[in-house]
Write a protein that binds this DNA or RNA. Structure first.
Lengths: 192, 192
DNA sequence: ACTCTAGCGGAGGCACGCCTCCGCTTCAAC
DNA sequence: GTTGAAGCGGAGGCGTGCCTCCGCTAGAGT
């Protein structure tokens, strides 16, 4: 595990083209891709994404030479948001900060379907994203552990997998999903 | 919610053809389908399934007119096993019986990828399978609740969704998966 | 305003999956 | 052993997705 060789923060910005029309298309593609990946997982049809973006398939391929480039970019963008959120929670009460972040994690990821795939992908960028996310969220768990609020026999990766798994499942409604999630988190909490 | 109009137990048997070669092909198709669904989810290629079974694509379609027929049959077969397991656990200590069954549930389902899809599918057969499973497993939770070992503010469906979600996620190894699962189940347990 | 080049779109070739159809094969009943 | 029908398999037509290539368009710099 080495530190990422480039800041996640800049992936989206650095690839965005300069010309006005090109930049507009780039944004439309990212938005369309986020939507399509959310619906169909990372195997969503690229032609469909181009269609949704109102752009020719050629334009998609010029901006993102492979499916992976596109997926990585969307994903990195979301991870970046999560990292910021973690920083903003630094001054809250430990257990509440942790659960608040996990809530964002549950909702914010590219797509429920794709989270699981990305969490285990080996590519450099995905690895870098995981590093950033662990670096940002890990301390939230450690803080809760030091405060005696979270059990010590699990690590942050365990926790993310648990939350990702539960949120990836279909529920009757949000109420049921939240109930199940909070029950599972009760298992993480040190019994009072 | 009405009772299923036919016994789950007989779906596989009733569809199995009589002629010797035909029955052999039928079995090979089921085995190949179970394997393929496990790898690729319920969208696995039917031509690939026929290939794995060493059978022409026409034979697949004769036995299973639609993808759904095939998927339902494999699924019903597994549910059937789970129902039997639940009955065998009836004489064990409540909490242990429940977790033992959930363990089987986690491992036995057609495929981790497909469980989630099937758990929310609306077709008659899937609904019947769910009914059977709830009827078989539900009492295990109720027994644990009455013994004061499981919390009362959740139902069996919540529990299955939780376990299905967690087991559907990729983990580094079985040890990690079991650890996470048991942490989540600690949330279900009434604190001693 | 002019230019020139970055950027555009989509036609088209390839691969693959779906499903039907029908001439051939093999079982099993007699 | 004969025979009829149940069962077989895969060719082929259709649709869809992948990706490349190239003639056209429109933004940016002068």
């Amino acid at each position: 595990m080495t530190a990422p060789s480039f800041p996640i923060t800049e992936i989206v910005a650095s690839r965005r083209p300069h010309r006005k029309d090109a930049a507009r298309n780039y944004d439309a593609l990212l938005a369309a891709a986020r939507e399509a990946f959310a619906e169909h997982g990372s195997e969503a049809s690229l032609e469909d994404i181009a269609r949704r973006a109102g752009v020719g398939i050629g334009t998609l391929y010029r901006n993102f030479p492979t499916r992976r480039h596109l997926f990585e970019t969307v994903y990195a963008d979301d991870v970046n948001t999560l990292v910021q959120v973690a920083q903003e929670l630094a001054d809250q009460e430990p257990w509440q900060a942790l659960t608040a972040w996990l809530d964002r994690f549950a909702g914010y990821m590219v797509t429920k379907r794709a989270v699981r795939e990305a969490l285990n992908d080996e590519s450099e960028i995905f690895a870098a994203c995981r590093e950033s996310m662990y670096a940002a969220g890990g301390p939230l768990l450690e803080r809760a552990q030091e405060a005696g609020q979270a059990r010590r026999d699990m690590d942050f990766v365990d926790l993310l997998r648990m939350v990702a798994g539960i949120t990836a499942t279909a529920f009757d409604d949000d109420v049921q999903r939240d109930r199940v999630l909070s029950i599972a988190l009760d298992g993480v909490r040190v019994s009072r």
